[in-house]
Amino acid sequence: MSRRSSFTFKHMRRSPYQSLAAVAVLSITFFVASIFSLVTLGSQQVLRYFETRPQVTAFFKDDTELSTINNLKRELETQEFVASVKYVSKEEALSIYREQNKNDPLLLEMVTADILPASLEVSGVSAEVLPQIADMLGVDPAIEEVVYQKDVIETLRSWARAIRLAGLALVAVLVATSILTIGVIVGISIANRRREIEVLHLFGANQWYIKKPFILEGALYGVIGAALAWGLSYILLLYSTPFLVSFLGSIPLLPVPVTFMLAFLAALILLGLSIGSIGSFLAVRRFLR
């Protein structure tokens, strides 16, 4: 680090309350932004989970031949909008039924494999293709009934979209606020060092020599704020993991992998660095012409 860069730390030490205020405001801003980012990413994961579940189930008539079922399965597998097709025989349907109702013996007593239909569970590449798959299966004479979770997926999609939009809007507002905050704080810093800047100019310092410590100062506020926000949001996430695991049930979202959180830290620091640099650059342009 050059001696001039070390002046950034010197200046920060000499105005500790100002530096503390800057870091606190940015930490809170980045904390809110990171929570919303995590919620948005989580909702996308939940949606993806539901989208990759068997989405369309076609139940066959009792007298349907296995060869008919296999023909239909093969035909489905050739379609590009179909992600996977799984055949569930009467026996497998019974074991699934037994598993789901193992705590209720009364429901298990009268049920045999004969009364349960064989079925095909078809996953689409996206929720949009579900009606297409359902229509294709519905016209087949061997099929008794077609069931798919159209409403659940649609609701989830609209929620995820709303969360993403709200998150983006909030992050945009917070980014603007952060840039403004850093701009104001660096502006105050420049005003406090007006005399020093004048002297530097008189002794032949060029513009970059004078501007560099201020831009570094803003960038540093951004990085520290981002790192603290990441720490706070990770602690919150770890603290609420038991509750979230029971709330989400079988959705495999938690625990969040450490590698993901490290990547998230890198992204936050990059964002903090960019916001800090932009904020201080704007302040320097405004106040150090």
């Binding site: 005399r195 002297v199 530097l200 100019h201 008189l202 002794f203 032949g204």
Partner: peptide
């Protein structure tokens, strides 16, 4: 800046930086 580096100026009002040491001021 290049011009100013050729001329050493000792100002009437000193223009010393109060929170820099004497050594730091001289080394400016």
């Amino acid at each position: 800046p290049e011009l100013r580096r050729q001329i050493g100026a000792a100002f009437q009002d000193f223009k010393l930086l109060p929170d820099w040491t004497v050594g730091e001021n001289i080394g400016l």
